[in-house]
Design a protein around this nucleic acid. Structure first.
Lengths: 214, 214
DNA sequence: AAAAATATCTACCTGCTAGTAGTTTTTACA
DNA sequence: TGTAAAAACTACTAGCAGGTAGATATTTTT
């Protein structure tokens, strides 16, 4: 799901060519999701009204209802970004990084850490507000999270089996790495002037040290 | 602030003796705070109604208003427990543990970790819902948090200065230890069948390893 | 045991918010 | 440029939730 947008207007651009209509719909959906994630991040899902979201975009409430079934559907879209992008990055690293287990661990922490920082507001909203999803959306999002956790756990177990990681850290380290997704935003924002690169490199070193794989 | 209560009724016990009235008031205040923290923890502050809280206690809404000024005041009481107990434990350890710096670090992680697990619901609500406090309450609670962070930072700096801790981990480790307060509840509940003791002992070892003070 | 004081409840108000019906504006196309 | 279709808006409803006034029940005191 692409979310980054560059224009700052919802006025339909005068473009020629076929099939740009669905693109423009997606563009507006993304603008809504982006604005909502920002507001939900700052004030919380239950404290934000749809009028708040509409105002932020200089549109009206019924506008939102022509792109989303209800308020909860907007939250579901945010949560989906929050977990699915991290999952996609994880799977990409696991599919393409074929070095040592410690190299794989470092790359996972680096790439997942980066996406969590890039999509900080989505990730935090996903964590904090997931409980307000409908039963169906909740199950769908939870499956993605379980897939994420499972693949992290497998990676760690393989490293332990190979002898590269200390035996006694399994399975806590798996929880720890999974915990990055919960923890980075708090940490990153509370560590003041540090750049994302500094924070991530520290996390990579910390993960290796915890795994006994320096 | 004492919060643990044993009775399961709000009916005034038939006790004799002077000055038990204020004790009974405190007892009821604690019951309200306890019930509210549980509901806020599970469903979120903004999604919980005062009727929910009252029902949980088998009383009515005006009952709550005779002990608290408004809904936000209940949240403030919860937040105060969430941070002030951790702060008290920290200060107690720092005042009485005079061994090596690594012994102090281990004891801080152990004792603060224990209180965070014991008061899990309060701590989580404090973190997640603090932004809904009034400006005055927010400032008051934030001061406690800053005091906590500051003392953790000092402890780490002293350990680094003494040579017991690795130089390059300062000041990230300070954020990490402070982050325990954010992180333990998620971790503890997602680590399945593990006992509080196991989780805490792992945290102590992890903190020492991160500090380079094993 | 009656009166005073305290504690709790019933019943209500007011403002807000998710969601909708139907009208108006804008766009696409001939 | 005129007409149909699509997009967006104005104006509304229904229900809920924080907060309160005044009545009732309970406890304490004399």
């Amino acid at each position: 799901m692409s979310v980054a947008v560059s224009s700052d207007s919802l006025i339909r651009p005068r473009v020629s060519g076929a099939s740009l209509k669905s693109e423009f719909v997606a563009f507006k959906v993304n603008r809504i999701v982006e604005a909502a994630s920002h507001l939900f991040y700052e004030r919380g899902y239950s404290s934000c009204t749809l009028d708040n979201v509409a105002n932020q975009l200089s549109v009206t409430k019924p506008f939102l209802y022509s792109y989303f079934k209800n308020k909860e559907a907007i939250l579901a879209a945010i949560c989906e970004v929050g977990i699915s992008e991290a999952l996609a990055v994880l799977e990409d690293v696991l599919a393409h990084e074929h070095g040592s287990h410690r190299a794989r661990l470092a790359e996972v922490v680096r790439k997942v850490g980066q996406i969590v920082i890039d999509r900080q507001e989505y990730v935090v909203v996903y964590q904090r507000e997931m409980k307000h999803l409908s039963a169906d959306d909740y199950k769908r999002i939870l499956r993605l999270r379980h897939s994420f956790d499972h693949q992290i756990g497998e990676m760690i177990r393989e490293g332990v089996a190979s002898g590269e990681f200390r035996e006694d850290i399994d399975p806590f380290i798996a929880v720890w790495i999974g915990g990055l997704i919960s923890w980075i935003p708090t940490w990153y924002s509370s560590s003041g002037q540090r750049s994302a690169e500094e924070v991530i490199e520290y996390l990579v070193q910390a993960a290796l040290r915890l795994a006994g794989a320096e």
